[in-house]
Design a protein around this nucleic acid. Structure first.
Lengths: 151, 151
DNA sequence: GGCCTATCACTCGTACACGAACGATCTTCT
DNA sequence: AGAAGATCGTTCGTGTACGAGTGATAGGCC
């Protein structure tokens, strides 16, 4: 049995295109993410991509609230909470009350967290390079540009 | 404090490139996946992308073992187990013993699962289109080709 | 001051995602 | 036949990911 595709008939009476999973963007996207995660783990096995993103962003912008940090790292409030909790347990992040706003807690890197970021930036750059390795320099630029449009 | 990049010095004494999270492929890749998941949910809210992938693949290849299905859908053995369990609970998938191999259980779509796939193929096509909507037809082709190389 | 709305952090429930380990079974090779 | 190794399905633990709901606080407006 063939599955019908919407609006894709080439000519009257032609076979409609079949839905092939391996051709769908979402499916390929998931696999590319998986490969990236695997490459990341190979270089920076002590930390996850998400945790690294959090540390790197904290290093970039300095002390911030948890909500803002979540937005900057593209994480749900519930997700960033768990990530920050784990980073605090490891001593990479500390939190202190915000004097100006009783709801907020200011998150910041500890010295240990700061040192960890500094020590692993070369590895993190390498992960990006590894991920794009199958492409030529020219393709890499094109790909990154197009990918950014799908954000 | 500036973070040093590896092997990226343009000229002697030049500033090393900073590590900016928003420029890293992995980070953008994650956001593209998130956007896709969101678009998927908008069209096919009753099911997740992973569950849909499983149903679609089962429809493509017919009855299979759980392990093989996991490989075909790029899922870990532990992951595919949970996905299949949920699909069985919903009545979309059934499993029966494989006469030839006592370890295996043959998974197959139920009539209801088959009908669900048929009814939602147009929506699934639309999700792929939605995801690539920010790109021109030409860009879409290029992007998909390059993305596939990163698998 | 009092109200309305937005924001902040937290919690609960569900669903991927994967490494690691396990017992049962099949295959292959000797 | 019997040992060695691979495969199948399962379970456990950890870590994202997000919707939905909660209470506390802040800010603007009348």
């Amino acid at each position: 049995m063939t599955i019908a595709a919407p609006r894709e008939r080439a000519s009257p009476g032609a076979e409609p295109a079949a839905y092939v999973l391996d051709e769908q963007v979402g499916f390929i996207l998931r696999q590319a993410s998986q490969r990236h995660a695997s490459l990341f783990a190979a270089r920076l096995g002590e930390i996850t991509p998400t945790q690294w993103a959090t540390l790197a962003k904290l290093h970039e912008v300095g002390p911030t609230s948890q909500n803002r940090l979540g937005r900057l790292t593209a994480m749900d409030v519930a997700t960033i909470k768990g990530v920050v909790d784990r980073l605090m347990k490891r001593g990479f992040v500390r939190s202190e009350a915000d004097g100006a706003d009783a709801r907020r807690r200011l998150l910041a890197l500890t010295d240990e967290g700061s040192a960890f970021v500094a020590a692993n930036v070369p590895g993190a750059f390498a992960v990006s390079a590894d991920t794009l390795a199958p492409l030529t320099a020219r393709e890499r630029a094109i790909f990154t540009t197009l990918l950014a449009k799908l954000t």
